[in-house]
């Protein structure tokens, strides 16, 4: 598994790697999070085919906006009306932590960069619009994604005893924690690689990684 390329890891089909670099984290007592690994994601409304990476049940264009990561910066490209902090966006703009985005007439999202040590970002849903399939927030994962009790984690898990780190290594996705982890029932002290569909458990922790096809 260590030599598995990220695209293989996720899909096994490089042709659709761009679309497929997403997975869901189902976390007990916390929620479900859509994690996007690509450097660029599209946000849009529902569509029978060619839906956006984050397809919301909302009155939006099929591809309403694109968020791109460039180094440690995030840039938003508007393909349809977008407001940032209440001001109309013309073409593109850099995003900062806490920026409120309004897509169309009613979809409101908040862009967060919760941890200064990581280039990963999170999109919170402020309005009631959600993707057709459950997601409490979207994580735009760079190299690492932090899960834990403190506010600076990308996914805040209030009752967890300590944080857990998801990271990419050699094209594979791995996790690391001080906690005694079990990966698919195997004792993995400190962490290890996470194949698709893995269930990770520890004291007061359980989550499952689900690839999106």
């Amino acid at each position: 598994m260590s030599a598995l390329a990220m695209s293989d890891y996720l899909l096994g089909a490089p042709a659709v790697a761009d679309r497929s670099q997403r997975f869901r984290l189902w976390i007990d007592r916390v929620g479900v999070f859509l994690v996007c690994l690509g450097d660029s994601i599209t946000i849009g409304g529902p569509a029978a085919d060619g839906a956006a990476d984050v397809s919301l049940l909302a009155n939006l264009s099929r591809r309403h906006a694109t968020l791109s990561r460039s180094g440690e910066r995030y840039v938003i490209y508007a393909h349809a009306p977008v407001l940032i902090a209440g001001r109309p966006l013309h073409e593109r703009a850099d995003l900062c932590d806490g920026n409120e985005l309004q897509l169309g007439g009613s979809v409101r999202l908040r862009f967060r960069l919760p941890c200064v040590m990581s280039g990963s970002a999170r999109l919170d849903f402020l309005s009631d619009h959600r993707p057709a399939y459950a997601a409490d927030a979207v994580v735009l994962m760079h190299d690492t994604c932090l899960l834990g009790p403190a506010a600076e984690n990308h996914i805040v898990c209030p009752d967890w005893p300590q944080s857990l780190l998801l990271y990419r290594q050699g094209g594979a996705l791995c996790c690391k924690s001080r906690d005694d982890l079990f990966i698919d029932g195997r004792h993995s002290p400190g962490g290890g690689e996470l194949p698709p569909g893995t269930v990770v458990t520890a004291t007061d922790i359980r989550f499952r990684l689900e690839t999106i096809s």
């Binding site: 040590m117 834990g148 403190a150 506010a151 300590q162 944080s163 857990l164 780190l165």
Partner: peptide
């Protein structure tokens, strides 16, 4: 309202 986020352990990096 935001203080609880500042008192927990720092994440493992």
């Amino acid at each position: 309202g935001h203080r609880h986020g500042f008192v927990d352990d720092k994440p493992v990096v």
